Amino acid sequence: MPTLVLARHGQTPANVGKILDTVLPGPGLTDLGRLQAEALGKELSALSVSALYGSRARRAQETAGIVGTVLGLPVGVVDGVHEVQVGDLEGHSDDESVAVFRDVYDAWRAGDLSARMPGGESAQDVLDRYLPAVEALRRRHPDGTTVLVSHGAVLRLVGHALAGGDDLLPDGDDHLDNCGRLEFEGLPDGGWRLVAWRREAPGGLASSRDATGG
């Protein structure tokens, strides 16, 4: 059975400024972000990773590249696993815009997959592009551990969808810091079991919470 690790990218300047920044290709990593990515690679070295991918975003590819250097693996690119597109909120960091983002995300958590970012995506839009990409990776790598570097808000949404009824978050806090990760074990019926929701950055290199991470 396969193992799947969904990891968030390292810190970016937009994360530091708490800016809603979702359009591709987006910014690269900060110095701290690169350290986080290196620490992630070191932690993942214990999992015998056999395949490594990232979204098309620059921050995801840079993170995966650093992880790949640590693990001695090439990095592939996966379409459809980029960040939730926030539409009219893009580039904003004001309290009102961030509150709108969080209200929509809270609606998703409550089960309203039709709720939509203003001028952007609904949860159903996101799941419709992301989940098929995950299943394509499973078909490509039916055994071993696959790592996919992706993004904060989309991983929180997809993590709950893949986990189904699994509840490893009794306090309800689904925060995911930069280079935090979700670990899943493949099931014989084609589903996934959530093994771990690792909220904090590896190596103790946590940054403050940003607009999309939690």
Rank of each mutant, 00 (worst) to 15 (best):
V75Q: 13
D174Q: 09
A133S: 14
T30G: 00
G72Q: 08
G28E: 02
G68N: 08
A39Q: 10
T145N: 04
Y130R: 01
L89R: 06
A206F: 00
V49E: 09
H92W: 00
L169R: 13
Q61K: 13
L89W: 09
P25E: 06
R193A: 14
R56W: 10
A107P: 13
T3R: 15
A107G: 10
H141Q: 13
V81Y: 14
L205T: 03
V104R: 12
G28N: 08
L182A: 12
L89S: 07
D189A: 11
K42S: 14
V104H: 14
R140E: 12
G159M: 04
V104F: 13
D103N: 15
Y130M: 06
V70C: 15
P188V: 02
L137S: 13
G111C: 04
D210Q: 11
P27Q: 09
R8M: 09
E43V: 12
S97Y: 09
T22P: 01
L155G: 10
W192Y: 15
V195S: 04
L113S: 07
E121M: 02
H160C: 08
Q61P: 11
E43R: 14
E62H: 09
H175T: 12
I66R: 05
R102N: 14
G165K: 14
W197M: 07
L187N: 11
P13N: 05
L205R: 04
G87P: 11
G72T: 05
A163R: 05
T22V: 07
P74W: 01
A51K: 10
R59P: 12
L32C: 01
Y105M: 14
A110N: 09
G119E: 02
L73M: 10
D125P: 03
L24V: 01
P74H: 08
V158Y: 12
V16E: 15
S122I: 01
V75N: 11
P188N: 04
L32P: 01
G17W: 12
T69P: 00
M117L: 14
L194H: 09
S207F: 00
A196G: 03
P132M: 08
S122M: 02
T22W: 03
R140L: 06
E62W: 07
R34F: 02
A39W: 06
R34T: 01
D189Y: 05
R181Q: 07
R156K: 13
E121N: 07
A196P: 01
H151I: 00
P74C: 06
V5H: 03
S208H: 05
H141M: 05
D189G: 09
P13S: 04
R139V: 13
V98F: 00
L194M: 12
E183Q: 13
G91R: 05
E96Q: 05
V16L: 15
